[in-house]
C-alpha cells in the first residue's frame, strides 16, 4: 500500500473503503456478498472458532454462495463461543452463538440460503457510538 500523506487522503481512503463495503452489502449489486465474521480472539480460537472459519470458507465456496469470511476480535459473548456474525446483503447483521460444524451447516442451509432464523441467535445487546 502507498503511504497516506495527509488527512484529506486518509478521509478519501476511508470513504472509498466504506463505499466498497456498502457495495458488497447492496442487494441490487450483482457482486454482493454474504459477509460473515468469526469472533477469533484467544478465547474464540480456544473454543474452536478457527475450524469453524475454515469450514465456512470451504463450504460456502463449495455451495457457490458468494461470500467473505473474516476474523474479528472478541464480540463479548464468551459464554456462547464460538460466535459468528452473518450479514446478508441489505439486512441487519445477526449473531449466532454456540456454532459447531452442525450448527454452521444449518446456518448456511437455513439462514443464508433461505433467510430463516435458526436457534442460537444472540440479540445484539449494546449500542455503539456510530
Amino acid at each position: 500500500m502507498t503511504r497516506i500523506k495527509s488527512l484529506d487522503e486518509l478521509k478519501n481512503k476511508r470513504d472509498e473503503l466504506k463505499s466498497a463495503l456498502s457495495l458488497l452489502d447492496d442487494p441490487d449489486n450483482p457482486d454482493r456478498k454474504v459477509q460473515i465474521k468469526v469472533a477469533m480472539a484467544t478465547c474464540g480460537i480456544a473454543s474452536g472458532a478457527r475450524s469453524i472459519k475454515d469450514f465456512l470458507t470451504a463450504e460456502l465456496s463449495k455451495r457457490n454462495i458468494p461470500s467473505v469470511v473474516t476474523q474479528t476480535g472478541c464480540m463479548g459473548y464468551c459464554y456462547a463461543e464460538p460466535t459468528i456474525e452473518v450479514k446478508l446483503p441489505g439486512r441487519e447483521a445477526v449473531i449466532f452463538g454456540y456454532v459447531d460444524r452442525i450448527k454452521a451447516d444449518e446456518i448456511i442451509e437455513k439462514y443464508i440460503k433461505k433467510g430463516e432464523l435458526t436457534e442460537g441467535v444472540i440479540p445484539r445487546n449494546y449500542s455503539t457510538i456510530d
Binding site: 486518509l10 474479528t72 455503539t128 457510538i129
Partner: peptide, 22 residues
Amino acid sequence: QLRIALRNCGMLDPENIAESIA
C-alpha cells in the same frame, strides 16, 4: 450497554488495517 472502548471489537479484522480505516 454502550461500547466506546470496545466500539470496534468484533466488528473488524484486526489484521487488516483497511477495515480499521473504514
